[in-house]
Design a protein around this nucleic acid. Structure first.
Lengths: 136, 136
DNA sequence: ATGGCTGCAAAGTATTTGCAACACG
DNA sequence: CGTGTTGCAAATACTTTGCAGCCAT
């Protein structure tokens, strides 16, 4: 998806910080970033990009449903591309890597939840944690 | 469960702040508290209990598996009694109340997850959000 | 040209830590 | 009594905000 185009379509200006941050997200294959990490990567392409701008850009992208974020138990927010089937994660207690759950797993869980819940479910994000196959 | 006894058993001292905080948690029926809220309630019983002490006590109780906490998207940590079947929550987008998911729902989800996951699942906590029946 | 964005700096929350005094066992 | 724990205050971490100048449109 072309995030820059998406921004333009909605009347937002295309600035260098926005281009840089969008391109990092687009070319990362659904990696999960702390704001700090994303800022580090951004400044490699443009030294002047400020941390506050990264926050503001992520907030903007989140407001138009392009990215999403969650919080780990301790520490900072983690931002990642939003997609229909990419809301659920599993984090390794040892190496701290975050993986997506398999699509079929998520579908099964979603089905259970929508059926049983007394809610109109709008969003869901969760983290399971354990020990990943690499660390086993 | 008698948390004070549990602390004593493990060699921790029984102090007034600990008694106060434990009794609030024990008598709350699995309510979910912000630290701030728990501190407010604590100072009603003992004016001098400090916010830092609430954090330290919660950290202690978490370390011995009596409480657990999670973070909402924005804002602060939420602490609650830990129990085998009380790790999963659903939060109303409108009134911000947090409910537990039905036990059977959780069991179904857990079953799917353990079966499909390539992880050894140790912990899981997640938040679903939507509109609760009261707000509908 | 004009108002949306930015960098910078400062403020705002949430949480943690250092330390001297205190009090549990 | 000795040390684990506390209140207090300061430090840290993360995030948001105010503002003057810049630049995309």
């Amino acid at each position: 998806m072309d995030f820059v185009r998406e921004l333009k379509k909605r009347g937002y200006r295309i600035t260098n910080p926005r281009e840089v941050i969008c391109s990092i997200l687009e070319n990362s294959g659904h990696e999960h970033f702390t704001v700090e990490k994303l800022h580090q990567l951004s400044t490699k392409k443009d030294k002047n990009i400020d941390l506050a701008t990264v926050y503001r850009t992520l907030e903007l992208l989140e407001s138009i449903d392009i990215v999403e974020h969650l919080h780990q138990a301790h520490g900072s927010g983690i931002y990642y591309l939003k997609s229909e089937n990419d809301n659920n994660h599993i984090i390794c207690d040892l190496c701290k890597s975050i993986f997506d759950l398999a699509k079929e797993t998520k579908e099964k869980i979603n089905k259970v939840l929508v059926k049983d819940s007394n809610f109109n479910v709008i969003n869901h994000h969760f983290i399971y944690s354990g020990v990943c196959k690499n660390c086993k």
